[in-house]
Design a protein around this nucleic acid. Structure first.
Lengths: 151, 151
DNA sequence: TTGCTCCTCACGTCACGTGAGGTGGC
DNA sequence: TTGCTCCTCACGTCACGTGAGGTGGC
């Protein structure tokens, strides 16, 4: 899908290491269509990746871990990445249709807003958990202080 | 483990509904030892739960979902709940050993601090994700504004 | 007695982990 | 040629989902 991985081609092991995951996960994501299958690969030969693939993989992992999405949900959510890739490709290819550009930018905006809503919900839940734990911590400290008056 | 579920006894379906999970998950957690097996239950008879079980289950689910812990890790982390239950039980039973009480309070404090560290790490990661997404959103808005000068 | 929820197997599923056996590039 | 990483099956695992067939309380 992406233009050739260029000079800085990574093999699957390096890509996995840099993204903080494993080769098995990368192959699985490719199988599910979350990562593009390096197009010009002969069956049995090595997969090669570029910087764009690394970025996309990192984003996938970050959204999965922090938002707790299933891979199915993840596929729907990362359409923002898709839109961004299309945008870059078309600009690089010299396409200059203003209406088309505006459409892509609006799509990206919508997907970013969706992701931000999910992030904000998580942040609210974590803030609540933090408040509960802190409150309990304070009460434990108070009870310890009571037990140990002016040592 | 806990003192009898008292008058407000819940069956597994109600407990699941109130905690936002399923009976299967509750049985699985019992099997793993994350939830106490209602002690006086004849094989094949219904499980009964009290308010304390509901609280513990909610706490388990919240920590698992928000911190992304495996059930194995979860078991180690929720020792704070354990300490709290022991504390309550001993106080209810009239045990009044100050040294023992202090020991339990210190244990609870340690576990709460551990949980808070995990929460704070997650909050930092989410803040970073939020900043990235917000930045991208701003840049998309700017590019849209450029394209559409003073309509 | 009729529904309803409960029970215990036990197989299915999702997201990978982990060898088994073999091929390809520095 | 020797290591190393890669390849494709394919079975294992974790955290449950989902019936199958049966029993128990309002």
């Amino acid at each position: 899908v992406s233009a050739a991985p260029a000079a800085s081609a990574l093999r699957i092991g390096e890509l996995a290491r840099r993204a903080g995951t494993t080769p098995r996960t990368i192959r699985y994501y490719e199988e599910l269509g979350l990562l593009p299958a390096a197009a010009q690969r002969a069956a049995g030969s090595h997969r090669l990746y570029g910087e764009a693939d690394l970025e996309r993989l990192r984003e996938l992992i970050r959204l999965r871990e922090l938002l707790g999405l299933s891979l199915d949900e993840l596929g729907q959510v990362i359409e923002a990445e898709e839109a961004r890739a299309v945008l870059r490709a078309e600009i690089q290819a010299g396409v200059e249709d203003p209406a088309r550009l505006r459409e892509l930018l609006l799509a990206a905006l919508g997907h970013l807003d969706l992701q931000l809503r999910l992030v904000h919900r998580r942040q609210a839940e974590l803030a609540e958990l933090e408040a509960d734990l802190s409150g309990r911590r304070t009460r434990v400290l108070e009870r310890l202080a009571e037990r140990e008056p002016a040592r």
